[in-house]
Design a protein around this nucleic acid. Structure first.
Lengths: 208, 208
DNA sequence: CCCGTATGTTTACGCCGTCAACTTGGTTTA
DNA sequence: TAAACCAAGTTGACGGCGTAAACATACGGG
């Protein structure tokens, strides 16, 4: 049925719905993800969604995972872009900065998706572990390990350094995506981002 | 009508509704603030709320302001508590740390209210300026000014230092309130908090 | 005292998530 | 190949939500 998939059986409704829902999230955040609207845009009845998703929350969960993946892509892209440090230091330091910059760039470019990536799940347990096992978090940990190996992070201070880095990036990103800093003129916002990135790296790496 | 206020005219419906709505927010965050439920708990018809609030968003806005005020109280309380530094240094450094600790303590103690304090407003403009003019932000700015006066923050680095401090505290608080770190065992969470507070202060104040 | 106005109530509308029952069409099997 | 089955759609209905309109009640000032 390769080509005539659009007749009665859609062929890939689950994906089509998730795409539509993601677009809703992009423009309005998690609260804009309404099942009936996604179904409408795909051209299918609302209840058709229930053949592929157990509930509204399940659909949101799918979108949420995409958003987390998107965030990780932004981080990886910034790492791969390889923009040099102002003060060209160790490669690992550059990478640490790139991870933070990618995180924040995502929040600036896609505030709706960023908010969706961290929206509340119906099951409270679900929120927790998944994130810490994500590729993004793994990249961060690996980079910090590397910096420790290079002697740039004292071994005594290594524990919980993921949290120091994550908190700082997440805080700035959240303040941008959630409102308080959204109205900042671009130039000031960029300055605040750089200042925060600088300060955080300095706090983590001895001398830099 | 001091005492017989409960007959037909309630006497202070606006406040009663805001109280009920705040309680809903405490247990379920902003998405749990449903107008009809608040009215139900006060024992009044749903549409009665419209004599005191223009819309559902208006009610949430009221709750949101209370939550922001609560946050500021937590910060002030922690400052006033005057718990000494591990390494007793300048008073202003202690106060900076207390501000951060109060911010995070609020998120730990009242995740629902914390999330409500930063929930999206219907008017996008509304989110921005109000926060930066809040008493909490003012306390932070004043303390940073003081540290600059003491020579603990180099003048060249003074700009945007509010953002460095705010981002760090807000990030950790948000990660706790929004899920990812909520399931951390208390001991680890406390360690992460202290480590982040230490690192941030070190990043802001030269030597400490 | 009486009337206006502030503050309630009832009713109703459309949108939401979701359930139950029915229909359609591709796949499997006798 | 025909029958039977099952996956994937449909329509219709329900209760809950925010909210508008019309109606009711009680307080307070002329």
């Amino acid at each position: 049925m390769n080509e005539r998939r659009r007749a009665y059986h859609h062929g890939d409704l689950a994906n089509a719905l998730t795409n539509a829902a993601t677009e809703l999230a992009r423009h309005g955040g998690p609260e804009a993800v309404v099942l009936r609207e996604a179904a409408r845009q795909v051209g299918v009845s609302a209840t058709a969604a229930y053949r592929h998703f157990a509930s509204h929350g399940d659909l949101i969960h799918e979108v949420k995972e995409r958003c987390q993946a998107s965030l990780a892509e932004y981080m990886r892209a910034e790492v791969d872009a390889g923009s040099p440090l102002p003060d060209p230091g160790p490669e690992a330091v550059r990478r640490l900065r790139a991870l933070g910059r990618g995180y924040i760039r995502f929040a600036v470019a896609e505030p709706g998706l960023f908010r969706t990536a961290f929206c509340q799940a119906e099951s409270p347990r679900e929120n927790s572990l998944a994130m810490v096992e994500s590729p993004a978090f793994t990249m961060l940990s690996a980079t910090l390990d590397e910096l420790t190996g290079l002697g740039l992070i004292p071994r005594a201070r290594r524990p919980y350094t993921e949290m120091v880095a994550w908190s700082s990036a997440h805080g700035l990103a959240a303040l941008i995506a959630d409102g308080p800093l959204a109205a900042f003129p671009e130039e000031e916002r960029e300055a605040a981002i750089n200042r925060t990135l600088d300060a955080t790296i300095e706090a983590i790496c001895t001398g830099a």
